[in-house]
Design a protein around this nucleic acid. Structure first.
Lengths: 149, 149
DNA sequence: TCGAAAACTTGAATGATTCCAGAAAAGGGG
DNA sequence: CCCCTTTTCTGGAATCATTCAAGTTTTCGA
């Protein structure tokens, strides 16, 4: 969890002006992994009192373009952001409650980056999304099944 | 490419009523791989003359729930549908023009289905999306770079 | 053929994201 | 330290895929 000065240094290193909204946004993404835009807007407002949603959208875009955060778009969900970048990890999304967890692939560092036939495409990035049920929802389903008349 | 009677049989086998809109929708998905909803609405109207967009949305949902087609949601794109189901193939999306191609993974039948730590999740499905540049866009970029002043 | 269940139509609502134009603030050169 | 250019922020309105709702029509098994 980076401190405020560390966050400011990250912004400078990425050639981005250091502004209070950006610091709040980047800090919020670190503190709320996989948060959607609305949660980040809320977290930023907790820090700053007032920020327009447009500023948060712009800030998220700038941070994403700079590679400081990562933009993910789980199926059936709005855009989400996370601070883990550059370590080739993937995600598992609960199809019942939408919870998201990080997973590392079992097969080496760059799994599934090799397509058997790439059709001439230049592959730059690969995203793996697992879907299923989180622990809470799978147990909830079991109890529902066993207790329903 | 299934014939109309074959499509009707597929609908019956899936316990779905056979209606003209559904036949047109399923046929359109077969004829236009990776088409978005708008294209499918257009193709269905070519067949039927008039269909409401709501009917197409409903039909696509019914066909997806029945497992006859597959719903994919590429990052930065609207929903798309395809007729290849149940064969564990993945997709590559061009980040420049949005073109989509099918790819089979090089590593066995169920690649990357094994997470190193599943956090207690029950994994039901895994989607792999590669991003990069299609042949046209990558060569276009090269020529842009070499011809720009 | 008949009636219940499923599907279709029309029209409006929702909601995340983007566009726009003007005001304010950051950082570098003098 | 101050001015100027660039970047950022604000507030509001627009866009557009998708969904909701209510009423009518079609399908299909009995």
């Amino acid at each position: 969890m980076p401190t405020i000065p560390e966050i400011e240094a990250m912004l400078r290193r990425a050639d981005l002006n250091v502004t209070r909204p950006r610091v709040a946004i980047l800090s919020a993404v670190y503190r709320h992994p996989h948060a959607d835009t609305n949660s980040i807007i809320g977290a930023a407002r907790d820090d700053l009192g007032e920020v327009s949603h447009q500023t948060v959208y712009d800030g998220l875009r700038a941070l994403t373009d700079a590679g400081l955060i990562r933009h993910i778009q789980p199926p059936g969900s709005v855009a989400r952001y996370e601070s883990r970048v550059g370590d080739n990890h993937h995600h598992i999304v609960c199809r019942s409650c939408g919870a998201i967890a990080d997973v590392d692939c079992a097969v080496g560092d760059a799994p599934c980056m090799t397509a058997s036939d790439d059709h001439g495409f230049v592959i730059e990035e690969t995203e793996v999304v697992h879907r299923g049920l989180c622990p809470d929802c799978s147990t909830a389903n079991v109890s529902t099944l066993t207790t329903s008349p």
